[in-house]
């Protein structure tokens, strides 16, 4: 992969304090639940690694599989999609559509040989700030175990 197409290098720098490699995570968050959950984590000063770059979408149903693919093409070490719990969608059924779509996206990534551990899909509600911060910690740790993503063209 040429330098121009990789995610900016600062994303994959070593953490100053821990000297541990920090992965870069693309997180696609539904506006009504998951983004609010992330917000809660922030306003409640819950600590989580600064590895994550959040893209806010109106609904997990808006999380186009192409966002996920583009994330991997551009060299993110991990991609996650978070949405409202089934039954809680602000638009009644957006996350039901997302559920099928994301399930097929997981299968596509598998077919393409992208390790399943690099993609994370989860339901996170607006009150689950704790859970959001735990998720990021866990995903970061998981990616640290895997190491940097070599890119789709290795």
């Amino acid at each position: 992969m040429s330098e121009q197409t990789t995610v900016e290098k600062e994303d994959t720098q070593l953490n100053e304090q821990t000297k541990e490699w920090q992965p870069s995570i693309l997180a696609i968050l539904c506006n009504w639940c998951s983004y609010a959950g992330a917000d809660l984590a922030g306003s409640a000063r819950m600590q989580y690694p600064e590895t994550v770059r959040i893209v806010r979408v109106p609904c997990s149903g808006r999380a186009d599989p192409m966002f996920v693919l583009k994330g991997f093409q551009k060299g993110f070490d991990g991609v996650m999609v978070l949405g409202c719990h089934p039954g809680d969608c602000h638009y009644a059924k957006g996350n039901y559509y997302a559920r099928r779509r994301i399930a097929m996206t997981q299968d596509l990534l598998k077919a393409l040989g992208i390790p399943a551990e690099r993609f994370h899909f989860e339901w996170v509600s607006a009150s689950e700030g704790n859970r959001f911060s735990a998720l990021i910690k866990e995903f970061t740790r998981q990616l640290q175990e895997l190491g940097p993503f070599e890119g789709v063209d290795r």
Partner: peptide
């Protein structure tokens, strides 16, 4: 032309 951060190709 393609840009990425501080470079153009």
């Amino acid at each position: 032309d393609e840009t990425c951060g501080n470079c153009v190709e």
